[in-house]
């Protein structure tokens, strides 16, 4: 369980990075996972928990030789990711927010919101790498 503190987020990032390294994942994967985890945590704290410092985000991580899977669960009510507008559409391209989910989807093999939408499951399968 994490509070929104940079130190604890960095410790988690380092732990995940170490696990990836131990299983021989390369730099591209480490970069992608770091980016996805950062975006997932920010979404959990900012949108899920609505910035409430008394709330936490729970992260579960599994790494083996074939895949890395993260579950990032906040204490919010959940949301439907389909309601997030396409940030690359002409009418949205200059809007400063709304690119986190897109980046996660681009770099990860799969990104799923587990109902009711407050748990994000992101999976990176080996050899697939950044797909965008």
């Amino acid at each position: 369980m994490l509070r929104e503190q940079r130190d604890s987020i960095e410790t988690l990032q380092a732990d995940v990075g170490r696990a990836l390294h131990e299983f021989g994942y390369g730099e591209a994967c480490t970069f992608a996972v770091r980016l996805a985890l950062e975006e997932a945590l920010v979404n959990g704290f900012r949108h899920g928990n609505k910035g409430d410092a008394s709330k936490s985000v729970t992260v579960r991580c599994h790494v083996d030789a074939g895949l890395m899977q993260l579950e990032v669960q906040d204490e919010g009510e959940g949301f439907n990711p389909e309601t997030v507008p396409d940030p690359t559409a002409e009418e949205n391209i200059e809007i400063p927010s709304g690119r986190g989910i897109m980046l996660m989807r681009a770099y990860m093999t799969s990104v799923e919101y587990v109902p009711p939408g407050n748990c994000l499951r992101i999976t990176y399968r080996r050899e697939e790498g950044p797909r965008a």
Partner: peptide, 15 residues
């Protein structure tokens, strides 16, 4: 070496 979507948003605001 790493950049988040929040940083992209800031660059757009500055732009």
């Amino acid at each position: 070496e790493h950049l988040s979507s929040a940083a992209l948003g800031t660059l757009l605001t500055v732009m």
